[in-house]
């Protein structure tokens, strides 16, 4: 019983973490460098390309 539970737990941990990390990496890559910046919302200078 304990063995099955442990199996489920480890499986969930491994696959859950794997899925989450891929999702996050994809989101971050898409947003680029500004995503990590704390003035991202009010920032109107650096992130917007000059046309």
């Amino acid at each position: 019983m304990l063995g099955i539970l442990l199996n489920w737990l480890v499986g969930l941990l491994v696959f859950g973490y794997a899925g989450w990390s891929i999702y996050r990496y994809y989101k971050r890559s898409k947003k680029g460098k500004c995503a990590g910046c704390s003035v991202e919302k009010s920032c109107s200078s650096g992130c917007k390309p000059k046309s």
Partner: peptide, 9 residues
């Protein structure tokens, strides 16, 4: 993080 996830997939 990412390499771990990618490796599992």
């Amino acid at each position: 993080t990412f390499i771990f996830g990618g490796s599992i997939v």
